[in-house]
């Protein structure tokens, strides 16, 4: 076995984190993307900018603010202590929370693009055929925007896996709790365990390539809608 137990732990934790975050982001991001695609409110521009902030902010800046927010006197800290929960700092759930914010644009933007490309016409057609709004979403929006959902899922997942700075800032480095693969690699390098670092890094490289490859293959395919299905 080329991976140590600690490595496997880190891989498992990373997958768990990314799956959880992707799932939550699809739940939260879909209505946000939907609202952004439909609204004509003046709030659209400022809110779009806010949701896109993680694209350009250094992870340390996000990590820093989250750290302050999670602290017992911070807004999130108040909430967690009010509900009798543990502090989110240096915890798995703290990582989930932070990753949701950090990976939000990678889910919201593909979805928003897909909704905007689809336009309103299919919804109007569905309504004229007696479909209720929820029915319209499930029977028309989901299948017509499925490449958008696919892209959002892949990017949200992959981006969470590739996260480092935020994890280090608010998660620390606790094995089985917050030590994800990227941090584990950092540890190996720090400890001069280059072969271990090599294995994990190569695994990450392969993972990233396969993810992106599947994304591009899928996107090429969907252009010939209906014919290859």
């Amino acid at each position: 076995m080329i991976f140590s137990d600690a490595d496997l732990n880190a891989i498992w934790l990373t997958l768990k984190l990314a799956t959880m975050v992707t799932f939550l982001l699809l739940l939260i991001g879909t209505p946000i993307a939907w609202w952004l695609s439909q609204t004509r409110s003046w709030l659209k521009a400022p809110l779009s900018a806010i949701f896109a902030l993680p694209l350009i902010l250094p992870p340390t800046v996000i990590g820093f603010y989250l750290l302050i927010a999670f602290a017992p006197e911070g807004p999130v800290g108040h909430l967690t202590s009010f509900f009798g929960l543990d502090s989110l700092v240096f915890s798995f759930w703290g990582l989930v929370f932070a990753s949701c914010i950090y990976s939000m644009p990678f889910v919201v933007q593909p979805l928003q693009n897909a909704f905007e490309t689809m336009g309103n016409r299919p919804l109007e057609v569905a309504a004229s055929l007696r479909a209720t709004p929820i029915d319209q979403f499930l029977s028309v929006v989901l299948p017509l925007c499925r490449s958008g959902f696919f892209t959002a899922t892949i990017l949200g997942f992959a981006h969470t896996v590739g996260e480092f700075g935020v994890v280090l800032m608010i998660g620390g480095n606790i094995e089985g709790e917050t030590r994800v693969v990227s941090v584990q690699i950092y540890d190996h390098v720090e400890a001069l365990e280059y072969s271990q670092a090599h294995y994990l890094s190569a695994a990450m490289l392969l993972f990233a390539f396969i993810i992106l490859l599947s994304l591009y293959i899928f996107q090429n395919k969907k252009t010939s809608f209906g014919v290859r299905l």
Partner: peptide, 20 residues
């Protein structure tokens, strides 16, 4: 009444079939 409760059939100008 919302559209889905009006007893209409609507034919749009351009083809409006569901592509999927």
């Amino acid at each position: 009444l919302p559209t889905y409760k009006r007893s209409i059939g609507y034919v749009f100008q351009e083809a409006s079939l569901f592509e999927h």
